[in-house]
Amino acid sequence: MSIQHFRVALIPFFAAFCLPVFAHPETLVKVKDAEDQLGARVGYIELDLNSGKILESFRPEERFPMMSTFKVLLCGAVLSRVDAGQEQLGRRIHYSQNDLVEYSPVTEKHLTDGMTVRELCSAAITMSDNTAANLLLTTIGGPKELTAFLHNMGDHVTRLDRWEPELNEAIPNDERDTTMPAAMATTLRKLLTGELLTLASRQQLIDWMEADKVAGPLLRSALPAGWFIADKSGAGERGSRGIIAALGPDGKPSRIVVIYTTGSQATMDERNRQIAEIGASLIKHW
């Protein structure tokens, strides 16, 4: 067993022997301040990774656009098919120029040779490549099948209805392509620590998230040296922004954090800054 596999296998073990965790309302004060600064709703939840206990939450059962955070769930569904012998990570998928959609920095470079399922998941999570996500959605049967996968996990809230990039439209009061912070946090925890996926697939999923290259201005910008984070960000229309993450000190994750916002007129930089400040408060009061 590799060191990384050992780390993920012992996530519940280490967490069980940690000192009790206590909620700190100071972080919620910052979440509410972010709402004021952005002029928009902000949803927040913080779960203990081992027990699933909610440590703090704000608007945990209000719907927010998922945006690209759905790509972690998508690759979880792909990995479940791999575990069941219905898919192979090494299978190569070929596609054409007509398949390319807006923001496809990886797939646009491989029109000639195609990409493997493993490479597509890596591109979808680490670079948020939209064509990679659409190609992977095709392998599982489309958005409705991802929703069905989530329902089978016990998540009857999260739903995907459309493809990239239309799913980022974020129309107010439109339930399409949305989740709730509580539902997303619980589902992410199941994917990373539950028995739904094999140990190898859980490790692969967290490795992809740990290698995320496009979430630097968010929670990662607030992390002290030595902290662990595996995350996936999302951005959408109407001032929408979000991030889902597993993080913790001492090089291992111990909490799940989900943050979503929508309806702001603020710039992307300002949305990023507010999420980073929430992260800084979380870490300060850990």
Rank of each mutant, 00 (worst) to 15 (best):
M268P: 12
E102H: 02
G226M: 07
L73M: 09
E164W: 00
A132Q: 00
L247P: 01
H94R: 04
S254H: 04
L79W: 01
M153G: 02
R189C: 06
L191T: 04
G154H: 09
G239T: 10
T107C: 15
G279V: 06
A200Q: 04
H285M: 11
P60S: 13
A77P: 02
E195S: 12
T139D: 12
N152K: 13
Y103H: 04
Y95D: 01
A40S: 09
W208N: 14
V214N: 07
Q203R: 02
G114C: 03
L79S: 07
E87L: 05
E237Y: 13
A123H: 06
W286Y: 07
C75Q: 01
E119Y: 13
T261G: 07
P253I: 15
I275M: 11
T112H: 12
T131D: 02
V157C: 03
A132I: 00
L205R: 00
R189S: 04
S80Y: 14
E56T: 08
L197Y: 11
S57R: 07
V78N: 15
R255E: 03
P60M: 13
F58V: 14
K144Q: 03
E166S: 14
H151V: 04
D99N: 02
G76M: 07
V29A: 08
R81K: 03
F64P: 00
D33S: 02
R176N: 12
A182W: 02
L160S: 10
T158Y: 01
N98G: 06
A230H: 01
S68F: 00
R159N: 07
A280W: 15
R220K: 14
V257M: 10
R159A: 13
A222F: 02
G242Y: 00
S128Q: 00
P143I: 13
L73T: 10
P143W: 05
S201A: 14
P172G: 07
T116M: 12
R241K: 15
W163I: 07
T107S: 08
K232A: 01
A266P: 04
A280V: 14
G242L: 00
L146M: 04
Q274P: 07
S201F: 13
S104C: 08
Y44V: 07
M209F: 10
K252S: 08
H110T: 14
I278S: 01
V257A: 14
V29H: 13
T69L: 12
H156F: 13
D177M: 00
E145H: 12
T138H: 13
K30D: 07
T112M: 13
E175W: 11
G236I: 06
D231L: 12
G52E: 13
T139R: 12
P25D: 10
E166T: 11
L223I: 13
A77R: 07
T107P: 01
G251H: 10
H285E: 04
I54T: 10
D113Q: 03
N50F: 05
R273W: 06
S122K: 07
S221R: 06
R162K: 12
K252M: 14
L199W: 09
D269M: 03
E35N: 10
N134A: 07
P181I: 03
R41V: 10
A230Y: 12
V101E: 07
S240N: 02
V101N: 06
S201E: 11
D207N: 05
E270W: 15
M184N: 02
I243F: 14
G239I: 01
W227E: 01
G114Q: 08
M184V: 04
G279S: 05
L282P: 01
M67Y: 08
M180D: 10
E62I: 02
E56N: 04
H285V: 06
G263T: 12
A200L: 11
G141C: 08
S281Q: 10
S264T: 04
S221N: 05
R118H: 09
D212Q: 12
T126I: 08
S51E: 06
P253Q: 12
N98A: 10
A124V: 15
P25C: 15
W227D: 01
P143Y: 10
